[in-house]
Structures are given as C-alpha cells and as structure tokens.
C-alpha cells in the first residue's frame, strides 16, 4: 500500500512537471549569433516562457533538418529566398501574423512581399542589402560598384573576400555582366562564368569570416551585407559600404512557425512580440541589421540612428530588387557555375 502510494505520488509529480514545463516553452532555430539575448530575456519574463535557441549555419542545413520531419523546434528563421520552399512543401503553419495585434507595425515595404503576400506565415526578423564593403585606405574611388570585387583596381587585387553565398555572388556577377537575375541565357551565363573565373585570381578568400578581417592587411574589400558593414565601420571609421550601381538585392530573414510546433501558442505570441517596435529594435541593436518594423528606429542605439548602411539612398533605390529564388533548374545551373568557380 505504502509502495503503491509512493509510486502514485512519483507518477503524479512527473505528470505535473511535464505539463507545467510544456506550457512555458519555446524552441527557436535560428542563425548563429543572430538572436538578441535581451530580447529573449524580455520575452521569457513577459510570458513566463523558457526559451531555447539552436543555431544553424546555412539555409540549406536548416531546410534539410526540418524536411526530415519532427524536430521539436517551434520557430525557424529562413531567408526569404527559401520561403517559397517552406510554404510550397507545407512545412510551416499559417499563423496569419499580418492580422495579429502588432501586424500593423510591419513597415510598408515589407507588409506585402512577393514571397508571403499578406504576411500569412512570416514576420520579418531583420532585413539587409547586399553590397561591397571597402577599406577606403586601400581604395578611395567610387565604392558603389561590383567592379571592386569582379574587376578589381590594382590596390585591391589579392585582398578581396567573397562570402560563399551562391545567390549573392551570382547576382552580382549576372548584373555586372548586364543580365537579369534568374536568366538562363547561355551566352550571358558563359560571360558570367568567365568573369568569375578571371576574378577569382584576385580573391584572397571565399569565407564568411573573411568579412571580419577587413581593415587588417589581408583583406581590403568584401561582398557584404548592410548590418555587417555597419559593424565593421563602428570598429574602423575608414570602412565604407557601397550600393552597387549595376544592381543590388535587398532581402530579409523571416520568422515562421513550424507546422508541427510543440508550443504553437507561444510561437504565435513570439511572432506578435517581435512586431512591437521596441522589441524589434532590441534585435537590431544586437545584430546591427535594421528591423522591418515601423518605428523601431526610435529605439535604436545612437550609433545606429541614421547609419548610411542601413537605409537605401533614394537616388539608388531603383537599382535594388528583392532577392528571389529562381526555379530549380536555373538554381541548379547557377549552382554548377558557382561550384566550378570554387574548385
């Protein structure tokens, strides 16, 4: 009898703890070093939720893992170019963030994007533009061109870093060759291939961490993104960021809720929480990337307010376009070209 009651008590305790902890959990699957700890602490306090964060290092890794089925993650932050895959394959839940309480705060440019019309699935995490970061001590000419990376001036030769993001580098090379993104015109791509092959001899590295070496003797210019460029400039005022006149992309990473999220309600709460300007600004302060939430700028730290890297100048606005995913065949072809360059 006694044994029985102990067993029962243990069981009851086990059940009660599982239930209690299941109520207050949220599991985030995000890029490494991309989540503001302050934001998380604030969310945990406000909703009495325990948050765990798991890192991934590329869209491909994240997608591969999520495709395998149940992961235990609630939310994931893919780049917009991957959104059609997530939606098309039915991996994410239609949570309708656009209709949530804070949905009205999404900045006009981002409220109704091609990859998620009406914001049925996703909340913008942060947004960015692709461009060129240059140490102006090595080169003091016009920084607004992909030519610095693809047909570099003498002083930058051998000191260039390319981030290994196929879409960004292929976009730069295609636009520099006068073509349109997602074009599969053989003559154009042949030109792109030759351009990249010739340019590679002037590249020092094809590496993400190469960006961090700008301003040291080894690297003087890099393919880069707005927030990362701002980080570099805050460390060294000689570093500048250019919006290439041949065309540049802007894009965003977006937080979506997985279809089989164990903590669906908390995930939705988190989506809504992120559309509050003050919270979005916390994320921006940490990552240095701008938030796509109206009014978040007011809460930015001072060194971010009015930073030239973070807003596209009116004059060059028409040179930018939303980076989109090409069809599988074109993506595969681009992949083969990029692979061939890296050999």
């Amino acid at each position: 009898m006694k044994l029985h009651s102990i067993a029962f008590a243990t069981l009851a305790f086990a059940v009660s703890t599982t239930v209690a902890s299941a109520e207050g959990k949220l599991s985030i699957y995000n890029w490494g070093n991309y989540t503001s700890p302050e934001l998380i602490t604030k969310f945990e306090k406000e909703y009495d939720v325990d948050v765990t964060i798991t890192d991934f290092d590329s869209n491909d890794t994240a997608l591969a893992k999520i495709r395998q089925g149940y992961t235990g993650f609630d939310v994931v932050v893919p780049s917009q170019s991957f959104m059609p895959i997530y939606i098309g394959e039915g991996l994410i839940a239609e949570t309708n963030p656009g209709q949530m309480e804070n949905g009205k705060n999404i900045a006009e440019d981002w409220a109704n994007p091609d990859f998620d019309p009406g914001r049925k699935y996703s909340v913008p995490w942060l947004w960015y533009t692709s461009g060129v970061t240059v140490n102006t001590e090595d080169y003091d000419g016009d920084v607004n061109t992909w030519g610095l990376l693809l047909d570099p001036p003498e002083s930058l030769k051998g000191k260039i870093n390319i981030v290994p993001e196929m879409n960004d580098i292929m976009y730069a090379a295609i636009r520099y060759s006068g073509g349109d993104w997602c074009s599969n015109d053989k003559a154009l791509l042949k030109k792109v291939h030759t351009l990249l092959k010739d340019a590679k001899q002037y590249w020092a590295s094809i590496d993400y961490s190469g960006i961090e070496k700008i301003g040291t003797g080894d690297i003087a210019a890099s393919l880069d993104w707005s927030g990362s460029a701002l980080k570099r400039r805050l460390g060294n005022p000689k570093i500048a960021f250019g919006f290439p006149k041949e065309g540049f992309t802007y894009g965003s990473d977006n937080i979506v809720v997985l279809k089989d999220a164990p903590n669906m309600e908390n995930a939705k709460l988190f989506q809504n929480f992120l559309m509050d300007p003050e919270n979005a600004a916390l994320n921006s302060a940490y990552t240095r990337y701008p938030a796509a939430i109206e009014g978040a700028e007011d809460f930015y730290p001072d060194d971010m307010k009015g930073a030239p890297e973070l807003s596209i100048p009116e004059a060059v606005r028409s040179n930018g376009e939303l980076l989109r995913l090409c069809d599988p065949d074109t993506t595969a072809l681009y992949g083969r070209i990029w692979l061939d360059i890296q050999k």
Binding site: P164, W203, I206, D207
Partner: peptide, 15 residues
C-alpha cells in the same frame, strides 16, 4: 581561404 578546396570542403559544398 576556402578558394582551393580539399575533398572535405568539396563534399560539404555539394551537400
């Protein structure tokens, strides 16, 4: 600098 690949890097890239 990741521009002269070895087999391990190549495999990662292919996947």
């Amino acid at each position: 600098g990741g521009k002269r690949l070895m087999m391990g890097n190549y495999i990662e890239l292919l996947f």
